[in-house]
Design a binder for these strands. Sequence first.
DNA 1: TGACAACTACGAATTGGTTCGTAAACTGAG
DNA 2: CTCAGTTTACGAACCAATTCGTAGTTGTCA
Lengths: 128, 128
Amino acid sequence: MSQPPIRPSDGELAILRVLWSRGLSTVREVHDELLKDREMGYTTVLKLMQIMVEKGLVTRDESSRTHVYRASQGEERTQACLLNDLLQKAFEGSAKSLVVRALSEAQADAAELDEIQAFLDGLKARKP
Amino acid sequence: MSQPPIRPSDGELAILRVLWSRGLSTVREVHDELLKDREMGYTTVLKLMQIMVEKGLVTRDESSRTHVYRASQGEERTQACLLNDLLQKAFEGSAKSLVVRALSEAQADAAELDEIQAFLDGLKARKP
DNA sequence: TGACAACTACGAATTGGTTCGTAAACTGAG
DNA sequence: CTCAGTTTACGAACCAATTCGTAGTTGTCA
C-alpha cells in the first residue's frame, strides 16, 4: 500500500515543479524554464534529471533521440509526503499545530480563509 | 527586520527538539534523549552542537566545565521558517493549498478540527 | 558530404551534513 | 596524589547533492 517515501531534494523539486506544470518535457524545456529563476548550466539539469530517473522520481521516453521526461508521482502525492515529513520532524506529528502555524504566518486573505473553512466543514461532515 | 533564514538540517532539528522540550541542556542530556530514538555516538552529538553554535542555531554557557546549551530561536519561529520554505518550494506560495493538503492527509479528530475552526474564526474576526 | 548544432553520458570537483576515533584537559573518588 | 571517568576539541572519512567540463553521438542543412 504505502509506497517508498519520496523525498526530493531542492533541485529535484524545482525540476518536478516544471514537469508538473508543463507535463511531458525535454531537458531543454526544463532548463529554459529554470533559467527564468536562476542561472544554471544545461548539463547540470541533465545530470540531475538522469539521477532522478535512477531514483524513480521521473521516467523518460528514450524512443526518440531527445528524451522526454515525466514526473512519476503526481504533485499532490509529493506534497503530502513532504508535509508528512515536516509534520514528524518539526511538529511532533500534530497536524493541528502545523495548520495553526501555517495560518498564523501566511497572509491568507478573507476569500482564502473562507475556502479553507468550507473545506473544513466538508471534513467534519464526513467525520461524525 | 527579517532575520537570516534559519534552515536546520534533520540532525540539527532533532537536537533543537530536545532543547525546546528540555530547556537548558548539556550535551550528555541531549545525547541521552536522542538515544531513545536511535543509536548514535556521544561525540557525534557534541560535534553537531558545536557546529550549531558556530551557525548561531544555539548558544552555550561555557562558564562551567560542562557547557550548557540553549536553542537561540524559539520553536514557533523555526516552525514558521520551515513551513515558509516548504510553502515556496512545493506549494507555489499558496498557504491555502498547503493547509488543505495537510488537512486531507492528517487524521485530525473532530476535537482538533473544532480547534482549528475556532482559530480560523479568530483570524477572520481580525481581518475585515 | 562536411560542418555545425543539439543531445546524452560520464567523470571530477565542491560543498554540506553526519559519523566517529583519538587526544587533551579537567574532576572527583579513593 | 593518582587514576578512572567525563568532557571538549579536532581531524578524518564518508555520503549525498550540486555543478560543470569534456567527449562522443546524432541530426540538419547548405
